[in-house]
Amino acid sequence: MKEFAVFWGCTIQTRFPFIEKSTRIVLDSFKLPYRDIDGFTCCPEKSLVNNIDHGAFVMTAARNVALVDEKNYDLVSPCTGCVSNLATVQSELKVNPREKDEVNSLLKEVGREFKGTAKLQHLIPFFHDAVGVHAIKQKMKRDFTGMKIALHYGCHMIRPSHALKNDDPLNPKKFDNLIRAMGAESLQYMTKMMCCGQGLDRVDEHDMALHFARVKLRELKALGADAMVLCCPSCFLQFDNNQFLMEKEGEKFGIPVIYYTELLGLSMGFTAEELGMTSHRVDCAPFIKKWEGLPAPRGLCKHL
């Protein structure tokens, strides 16, 4: 497997270092050739930067990609937004040689060059395609048979498809495949593909952001989901933090929000504490208690 740089992004490192923790635990356990490299900046966040200055958006992303190109690495990120933004610029520059020359004439001033050779992937398609369901199953000590999991893909894991090219942008399958491979039921629900709505919190519309979280959480509560599983810090902020805020005001949902690498880590025998899950705002204990209480499937050891 080709070496790859991990692009952690601002949100994980600023707000959710425990996501970095479980991701590193999993990457280490699979002995994947991941690298931390110097020099990354914000990806940058499209909704913020692109609206104000498209040139700065392109230049910043192109510079981040150039750092990976230079080392002849690929790139993997546990943040959907980061990958989507970097890939959007990479594809724009690939079809627009004039713009690419302009950016490179800037980057040249600091000794860099955007080539666009690095493969840019989000963690989920990466696990699906490069690690593979078979290898994942081999590492698992216990599966999630009997648990109902509601996946939230995160729009930017799969869209825009012309830049990411990794799954069906309207009816994606890869995350579902990974969850089913772990033995869990992947709930099919009405609002499954609806955007989390966290973007509204970034434009001073907190109440509307809460409304978006509420729509999904209500449906999941009615369906009796044991947890929501996702793989994006922005969506995590929306469903963990904002759910907690609504619960504080008296609206009860009780849906634990679990990051993909946390779920995988649990199945590999790591504890919730080791994975940093005790830092979530919405308590994950009910999920773990139910799981531990289920009869152990034959051939897999129940006690970790």
Partner: peptide, 28 residues
């Protein structure tokens, strides 16, 4: 868009974050 959460990183046993490219970014 924010600085790494150092105390939490320490508690979790995470490595030092890598250097950012802020100087180069500002120059560009």
């Amino acid at each position: 868009l924010g600085e790494p959460a150092m105390p939490a990183r320490k508690k979790l046993g995470l490595p030092e974050p890598k250097a950012t490219g802020s100087e180069e970014f500002r120059k560009l």
